[in-house]
Amino acid sequence: MSEHKSGEKRKSEGKDRSRKRYRPDGTPVWGQRSLEGPGIWATCVRNKERSTVGELYDLFESLSKDLWPEPSNADTLNDDAEGSDGEADDGETIEAQIAKEVASMKRPRKEQRFANSDTNTPCVVFISCKPPVNPVQLVVKHVENVMETGVTRTRFTQRLTPVAASCIANIPEIKSLCTRLLQPVLDDDPDKVYKYKVELRIRNHNTVKRMEVIDELAKCMPEKHVVDLDNAELFILVEIFKQSICGISVVKDYYKMQKFNVMEIANTKNEEIGFKEGEGRLAEKSGTDTPVPP
């Protein structure tokens, strides 16, 4: 009897796995992915993947505390302590106080906002993000800081690519996800006509073709918006990785921010600072208030 029931259970589980699933908007969900977004792709120095993960944890945690601050645990503990003291004065029993202490110890730990996903690929790291973290906002904030200061706060990280959401790497899923991500961006300024470009990067994948993806994603944009490969204002960043995963985000000023290559941004900024300092020293030696031309 038990074997019969277990056989029925396996059959029903197989049917559930093969049954096509649908989103609330009616679009089908195709397959399963090996990496889950949202998150951030990072390229790094070869053989420094583990070190890159560590430095990105520290960087992202620091930035997220400023962008999305959490309530202080100390405040909660103080409130509990004040409450327990007041109730103890009113005749609370020792057993009741102990029960409160045990309950406070059993509170769930603060959920980690970032987690490393093993890519098994040299020079490539993926850090998944949990709410309230917005990967695009996080990366843009860091890039702006590097552009201003020339300090990356990392040693091995090269380029960062935010992933607002991910899907299976096939055309129907990619188009569906792109449409959903574009809608709120376009709705922010419905009268604006954007010049846009699809920035596609494919790693270890040979199923969907590059031009096919770009052509299909262009159909997701309303016709009034125009493709501009040199002076785009809006960029659809698409990362296809291996056979199963596609990550997409919609960003602005991607070229102005040197494609989020923080190492290059820092080098450029530090060269500018060094040049200005050199001009200043020449001016001091010449005894004038203005820089001497080289």
Results as ranks from 00 to 15, higher is better:
T207E: 08
P108D: 10
K192R: 12
T121P: 06
G14K: 13
R180Q: 14
K100T: 09
N231I: 00
D90T: 05
A99N: 08
E279K: 14
L181I: 10
G280T: 05
V185C: 00
K11P: 00
D75N: 14
R46H: 08
D90C: 04
F60E: 09
K224R: 14
P69K: 09
I240T: 10
T152Y: 08
G278I: 00
E173K: 05
K106G: 03
M263K: 15
V136S: 10
F60R: 08
T27M: 08
T179P: 01
C44L: 12
R159G: 06
G26R: 08
D191G: 02
V185H: 04
V238N: 01
M263I: 05
K256R: 04
Y194A: 03
Q32T: 11
K141N: 07
P108S: 12
N145M: 06
R153H: 15
E8H: 05
P38E: 07
E111H: 12
R109K: 15
T152F: 08
C178R: 03
F260E: 07
V227R: 13
M147I: 01
V136F: 01
P131C: 04
P293Y: 01
L186M: 04
V140K: 08
V262M: 12
A169S: 15
E92C: 08
I94G: 02
Q258M: 02
E70I: 07
R201V: 05
E277D: 09
K242W: 01
R50M: 10
E148S: 07
K195N: 10
S84Q: 09
F235P: 03
F126D: 07
G280Q: 11
S84R: 08
D25F: 04
E49M: 06
T154E: 09
P291A: 04
M263W: 13
V125R: 13
K269G: 01
V29L: 15
D228T: 02
E212Y: 01
S51M: 11
K195D: 08
C178P: 03
S2W: 10
R155D: 15
G86C: 05
P222S: 03
E212K: 11
K5R: 13
E279S: 07
R19H: 03
E264V: 02
A74E: 14
N134C: 10
T119K: 13
A103K: 14
Y194P: 03
S6C: 05
T161E: 06
N145H: 09
N231G: 07
F60N: 04
K242N: 10
Y254A: 02
S12H: 06
G91L: 02
S286N: 11
G280M: 10
W30S: 11
S64C: 14
L56M: 15
S62N: 13
E284S: 06
V213M: 01
T154N: 05
F60S: 07
P222E: 04
C129R: 12
E3L: 14
M211G: 00
P24L: 12
A74H: 12
R153Y: 15
A232R: 03
I265H: 01
V45E: 13
D188Q: 15
W30G: 03
S6G: 01
V238D: 02
I98H: 02
G31T: 03
M1T: 15
S64Y: 12
L181H: 08
G86I: 02
Q97S: 12
G54F: 13
K141V: 01
D118Q: 12
E216M: 11
E272N: 10
